[in-house]
């Protein structure tokens, strides 16, 4: 007997995936497939696009139309796919470095245009594939191979970055909070316009070892204890919120979508 989700939505011959033991990416990838299943989308009408990095290996395992592109440019390729074929449900999978450093400009402009793409950021706070260099989301004072004495940069909040740039849906969740993640994925995919879900992952091999975070289970417990839904946090006294990170749906609004506006121009000129 096979795993029902794996059998229906993944390329069985490519599994097991090559992510490290305890890597949170598999949990997030499964959540995307569950959301697609729940929404009842036609598999042939879904296109998954990625760049380069650990997370960007996901489309290799997922049994949909898939496109594995160059570093940071997943959103640029996805913009092309969406404009050429607006009825496709285009989902971009990107790591924190891929999305906010190498592809930072693509992110802000895709958000600004409010083009109907769903971006899922697998944020593990490090460049895992290349051995643990610090990324734009590595917290200040944490270590990477390129920050052996501690990172002096201030980290990006990718969710807030997307909101600032003009996204119309933005949410943050973690690999521990799976029921919440499933709901947010579903809402993001169903959303018309640019949507982003930042899923905090765990990297026990590089980020974890370098920063003495313990095992995969210890890192999952950190997610469990340190992240709370912002709507729950509103009702908590300040001392209970101290040192906690906020997750949940931060923005969900309706604005004109790019490919629809583009089609309107075409229709207008044809008259």
């Amino acid at each position: 007997m096979n795993h029902p989700l794996a059998e229906g939505f993944f390329r069985m011959e490519k599994l097991p995936h090559i992510w490290c033991p305890g890597c949170g990416h598999g949990i997030i990838m499964a959540s995307i497939a569950r959301a697609i299943d729940k929404l009842g989308l036609d598999k042939d009408k879904v296109c998954i696009v990625s760049g380069i990095g650990c997370s960007s290996r996901a489309p290799g395992y997922m049994d949909f139309n898939t496109l594995h592109t160059t570093h940071g440019r997943a959103l640029a390729f996805a913009t092309g796919v969406k404009l050429a074929n607006p009825e496709l449900e285009v989902i971009v999978i990107a790591g924190d470095g891929d999305l906010s450093a190498i592809g930072g400009n693509h992110l802000i402009h895709a958000a600004r245009r409010n083009i109907g793409l769903t971006t899922i950021c697998f944020n593990n706070n490090i460049y895992g594939m290349t051995g643990g260099q610090y990324s734009p989301t590595t917290p200040t004072s944490e270590k990477g191979t390129t920050a052996p004495y501690g990172n002096i940069d201030k980290p990006f909040d990718i969710t807030q970055l997307a909101i600032g740039a003009g996204a119309t849906y933005a949410a943050k969740t973690t690999a521990y909070h799976v029921p919440q993640m499933d709901k947010l994925m579903e809402a993001a995919i169903a959303h018309k316009g640019f949507s982003l879900v930042e899923a905090i992952s765990i990297c026990p091999t590089y980020y974890g070892r370098k920063n003495k975070k313990g095992s995969a289970v210890d890192m999952m417990n950190f997610l469990k204890d340190s992240f709370i839904d912002h709507k729950v946090a509103e009702k908590l006294p300040p001392e209970k919120k101290e040192g906690k990170f906020l997750i949940g749906e931060f923005l969900n609004k309706v604005e004109p979508e790019y490919t629809e506006q583009y089609d309107k121009i075409i229709a207008q000129l044809k008259k």
Binding site: H3, G22, C23, G26
Partner: peptide
């Protein structure tokens, strides 16, 4: 277990 397994290695299914 199925929900948080990153590897599709454990799951609920019909009795064989």
């Amino acid at each position: 277990c199925q929900m948080r397994c990153p590897d599709f290695a454990i799951f609920l299914g019909g009795k064989e």
